[in-house]
Amino acid sequence: MRDTTDEEFRAYVAARRPALLRTAARIAGEDAEDLLQAALAETYLAWERIGSRAAVDGYVRRAMANTHISWWRRRRRLDVHPSGDVPERPVADDAPRCDLRDALGRALRRLPERQRTAVFLRYYEDRPEHEVAALLGVSVGTVKSTVSRAMARLRDDAVLGAARH
């Protein structure tokens, strides 16, 4: 029985790891690998208790969120309080990366809901077209054309935005 469970879990991790790692990166940044590993360890321990295999992604995401919150609380208690000392080296400026992420978020919000959902499932969740089609209740051809139109609109927005600056 345990061998079957181990094989199911290994197959799940092999199939979903890239998408889960992207989610972990959005949550924890450079600690994404550690966060995902901790969440997968928790999921492995609960594998037989998870009722539906369709619910596993949600379980892993919730485990990542809870683990990250715990880490944040633990670090916050250990934080050093500010002092009057100025660091010798300049602090890294993440503003350009944040600006790009904000611009992408704004561009995605301008898309119609169906296009936004298709792009999210296809590229952010890294799901194959047939899976996106099943989730949206449409044909694979509809997914392809919807994503194509969305990407064209995002490209147009990027070109127009660059022309304004």
Rank of each mutant, 00 (worst) to 15 (best):
M1T: 11
M1Y: 03
M1N: 09
R2L: 13
D6K: 08
D6R: 12
E7N: 07
R10Y: 05
R10F: 07
A11M: 11
A15Y: 08
A15H: 10
R16M: 13
L21N: 02
L21G: 08
L21Y: 02
L21K: 02
T23G: 03
T23Q: 10
A24W: 06
A25R: 10
A28C: 05
A32V: 09
L36Y: 04
Q37C: 08
A39Y: 01
A41I: 09
T43E: 05
T43N: 08
T43F: 07
L45P: 01
R49L: 11
R49T: 04
S52D: 15
A54C: 04
A54K: 05
V56L: 13
V56F: 00
D57H: 02
V60H: 04
R61F: 01
A65T: 13
N66H: 07
N66C: 03
T67P: 00
H68P: 01
I69H: 00
S70A: 10
W71M: 04
W71F: 07
W72K: 00
R74I: 00
L78G: 08
D79F: 13
H81R: 09
S83Q: 05
G84H: 10
G84K: 12
D85W: 13
V91A: 11
V91W: 12
A92L: 15
P96A: 13
P96S: 11
C98F: 15
G105E: 14
G105L: 12
R106V: 13
R106W: 07
R106I: 09
R106K: 12
L108V: 14
R109P: 06
R109V: 12
R110M: 15
E113T: 05
Q115E: 15
R116T: 02
R116P: 12
L121Y: 02
Y123C: 07
E129T: 10
E129S: 13
A134L: 09
L135R: 11
G137I: 02
S139K: 01
G141F: 07
T146C: 04
V147P: 00
V147L: 05
S148I: 03
S148Q: 12
S148T: 05
S148G: 06
A150C: 00
M151S: 10
A152N: 09
R155M: 12
D157N: 04
A158K: 01
V159E: 14
L160G: 09
A162K: 08
H165P: 02
